[in-house]
Design a binder for these strands. Structure first.
Length: 467
RNA sequence: GGCCGGAUAGCAAAGUGGUUAUGCAGGAGCCUGCAAAGCUUUAUAGACCAGUUCGAUUCUGGUUCCGGCCUCCA
C-alpha cells in the first residue's frame, strides 16, 4: 500500500490513483541556461527513484518532466554570450542529459519544451481572460487576477492579506493587484518573441507548466512534483491557472524534494554557493552521487560535503564488496531470503513515502548475510547476492560488475597505475610471499597503497580495489 | 511581521509509546605471515522544561536554537 506525503494536506496519505491502469506524474524540470547543480541532481535522482517504484506498483506510468527553454535568464545569458537562445538551450539540454545518464537517471516518458507549447498556453490564457480571471494591462502584459481565485494559497498555506502586508517592492503599477502574476509578457526590442492574441511576447514562467502538464496528462492527474522552492509561488500559481481555466481539481498529490545544503544553508544560484553535477563527477562517480542522494529521505535537507560524499562511497563499496565474485549464478529464492522477507520489507520501505534510508538499510542486512554465508554455503550466498543486485536495481544502484565499481578511478580517467601493472606487482608480491620473503611483499604492498590500491588476500588469491 | 520545517549517539541517517535501525569511525575477539576485507561482540543517543501515561526519543504544551518560503531559484 503506497503512501505519499502530500504538500497539499501536509500529511502522508494512501495513494489512490485516478486510474490504476495509468498513473500521470509531472515534474518541473530545469531552466536550461547553465549546467545542472547538486540541487537539480537531487530532484532528478529522487523522482527517478519515485517513478521506478511507481512503475513496479502500476502497469503504466506516464512521467512528464518539462524543460523551460525561454525565460529572462535565458535571454540575458544568450545576449551575454552573443548567441541565439536555441543554441544556448540546446547545449545545456545536452549537458543535462549527459549528467542524468551519469547519475543513472532514466529519461522521462515525455520531455516537453516550453517553446513548443505556445498554442497550449494561448488556449489556457484565453480561457482565463474569458472567465474574467485574467486581464491585459495597459502595458500589454497579461496578468492573472489572484483575488479571483478563491482557493489561492491552499498549497503553500499562505493567506493573501498576509502576503500583501509582507510584499516587497517591485509593485508593478500596471497590475490591478500587486499579487497578480504575469501570464504573457510583451516583448522588448531585440528579445525573442512569439506572436500571440495579445501581441508579440513570451510566456510568464508559471503558465508553461499548467499548459504542458494538462496537455499531456489531462486536466486532472495524479502527481505533480519539483523542488521545495517551487511550492510557492510556482506551484501555487499553477493551481490557480489550471483550476481557474479548467475547473475541478488539477492535481491530487503534490510532492516536494528538500534542498541540498552547503554548511546547513540552501545551495542556490542566487547565493552562488552551488556545485555543478559535472564538477562533482570529477572527483566522485555518478553512482556514489546517486547513493548520497538516496541516503537521506527526499523531504529532509541534505548537506553536501566531501565527508558525506566519502561516506556514500564507503557504504557503496561495502555493498559491492558483498556481491564481488558472486554476481553470476541462478537467482533461486532461498530459505533465508524468504525467512527475512528482504524484498517485502524493501518494497514496504519504498511504499512508505519512498523511504530510501530504510530501503538501503535492508540492503546492508542482506550484505551481512551474504558475507557470513559465502564461506559456508556458496549457493545460498549466490542467491542472496542475486537478490541484493535485484533490489539495488529497483533504486538504480549495484548494476555494475563489482570489480568495475571497486577498481574504477574517481573520474574514470587513466591516472596512476594501469590494471596490468597492478596485476604484475601482485604477481611479484605473491611470489615473494610464497618464498616467505615478507619484507619484499610488504614493500610492494606499501608501494601500491601509496598509489591508492588496496590489496585483499583471500583463499582464492589476491584481489584489489582502488581506494 | 506572516506561514512552514527541523533539533537523534564522534559523524551520517531512519523507524518506533515499552524489545538491535542502518552505514562510517572507536574498543575487544576470530581470521591473516602481517594487513585488508569479512565475521562475532561492545560502548556512545534523542536540544531544554513541563504534562499525559504503568512507561516517551516517539503524544501534548512551552522555551531555546537552526533552516526554509513570503523575490528568479530544484
Amino acid at each position: 500500500m503506497l503512501k505519499i506525503y502530500n504538500t497539499l494536506s501536509k500529511q502522508k496519505e494512501i495513494f489512490h490513483p485516478i486510474d490504476a491502469d495509468k498513473i500521470g506524474i509531472y515534474v518541473c524540470g530545469m531552466t536550461v541556461y547553465d549546467y545542472c547543480h547538486m540541487g537539480h541532481a537531487r530532484v532528478l535522482v529522487m523522482f527517478d527513484v519515485i517513478t521506478r517504484h511507481l512503475r513496479r506498483c502500476f502497469p503504466k506510468v506516464e512521467y512528464v518532466r518539462n524543460i523551460t527553454d525561454i525565460d529572462d535568464k535565458i535571454i540575458a545569458r544568450a545576449i551575454e554570450n552573443k548567441e541565439d537562445i536555441y543554441s544556448l538551450t540546446n547545449r545545456f539540454i545536452d549537458a543535462m542529459h549527459e549528467d542524468e545518464r551519469a547519475l543513472g537517471v532514466l529519461p522521462p516518458d515525455i520531455e516537453p519544451r516550453a517553446t513548443d507549447a505556445m498554442e497550449q498556453m494561448f488556449y489556457m490564457v484565453k480561457s482565463l481572460i474569458e472567465q474574467g480571471m485574467a486581464y491585459q494591462a495597459s502595458n500589454g502584459d497579461v496578468y492573472y487576477s489572484v483575488r479571483k481565485f478563491a482557493a489561492y494559497g491552499k498549497l503553500s498555506g499562505k493567506n493573501l492579506d498576509d502576503l500583501e502586508a509582507g510584499a516587497r517592492v517591485d509593485v508593478n503599477s500596471d497590475k490591478k493587484d500587486p499579487l497578480d502574476f504575469v501570464l504573457w509578457k510583451m516583448a522588448k526590442t531585440g528579445e525573442p518573441s512569439w506572436a500571440s492574441p495579445w501581441g508579440h511576447g513570451r510566456p510568464g514562467w508559471h503558465i508553461e507548466c499548467s499548459a504542458m502538464s494538462t496537455h499531456h496528462l489531462g486536466n486532472h492527474f495524479d502527481i505533480h512534483g519539483g523542488g521545495m522552492d517551487l511550492s510557492f509561488p510556482h506551484h501555487e500559481n499553477e493551481i490557480a491557472q489550471s483550476e481557474g481555466a479548467n475547473g475541478g481539481t488539477f492535481v491530487n498529490t503534490w510532492m516536494h524534494v528538500g534542498f541540498v545544503n552547503i554548511n546547513d544553508e540552501k545551495m542556490s544560484k542566487s547565493l552562488n554557493n552551488f556545485f555543478t553535477i559535472r564538477g562533482v563527477l570529477e572527483n566522485y562517480d555518478g553512482e556514489t552521487l546517486r547513493y548520497f542522494m538516496m541516503s537521506s529521505h527526499y523531504r529532509s535537507p541534505l548537506n553536501f560535503s566531501d565527508d558525506n560524499l566519502n561516506l556514500a562511497k564507503t557504504s557503496l563499496t561495502r555493498l559491492y564488496t558483498a556481491i564481488r565474485g558472486l554476481s553470476a549464478g541462478s537467482a533461486a529464492t532461498d530459505e533465508v531470503s524468504q525467512r527475512f522477507d528482504f524484498e517485502t520489507r524493501f518494497s514496504a520501505a519504498l511504499d512508505d513515502d519512498f523511504n530510501t534510508p530504510i530501503a538501503l538499510s535492508i540492503l546492508f542486512e542482506l550484505a551481512k548475510f551474504i558475507n557470513s554465508k559465502r564461506d559456508k554455503d556458496i549457493d545460498q550466498a549466490q542467491a542472496l547476492a542475486q537478490l541484493l543486485i535485484k533490489l539495488g536495481g529497483y533504486i538504480g544502484i549495484l548494476q555494475l560488475q563489482a570489480d568495475v565499481f571497486l577498481k574504477h578511478t574517481p573520474n574514470n580517467t587513466d591516472a596512476g597505475l594501469s590494471d596490468a601493472a597492478i596485476d604484475a606487482k601482485i604477481k611479484q608480491r605473491n611470489e615473494a610471499r610464497a618464498n616467505q620473503d615478507f619484507a619484499t611483499s610488504d614493500r610492494i604492498r606499501d608501494e601500491l597503497t601509496r598509489e591508492g590500491i588496496i590489496l585483499e588476500d583471500g583463499s582464492d588469491g589476491t584481489s584489489w580495489r582502488r581506494k
